[in-house]
Amino acid sequence: MRTESVVVRYLALRAAPFIQLYALYVLGHGEDGPGGGFQGGVIFSASFVLLALAHGWPFGRQQVNEKVADILAPTGALIFAGIGVLTMLAGGAFLEYGAFAKAGAEDPEAARLAAQHIGLIGIEAGVMITVAASMAILFFEMSRPPRESKGNDA
């Protein structure tokens, strides 16, 4: 069941991409601003909540492919752990990004900071993918209309 108000429906459709774009901005500013993977993921999935509210549950469900979401949720965690393992392979501790820095760099400190930057963005992206996918799955499964679960409409 969607809202009858055409204003709300139109605006939800137009606002959702901006919300998703803003979620990516929040992800990118995890270091020097109030952001990061978790917040970005939550804001990202909020756009799907808005679409489902304005256009009905089936429309929102269409936007999030069930299989893709199910695969993405563990993939994000895998990225997180994978980066940690990569740092160990590079000779550091778990999630010690400095290990990524080139050994023979002219300015070791700057190289270490740059490596830290890349590593942080990487794990934040992993967290965001997991959180966004899990939140979307949680919302759509918990708000599933009773009729839909029997599959009579299909």
Binding site: S5, V7, V8, L11, A15, F18
Partner: peptide
């Protein structure tokens, strides 16, 4: 800009 649009829409939804 966002508040201008979103606030007007919530006002519309409430009145409706």
């Amino acid at each position: 800009f966002f508040i201008f649009i979103l606030n007007s829409t919530s006002t519309h939804a409430l009145a409706r």
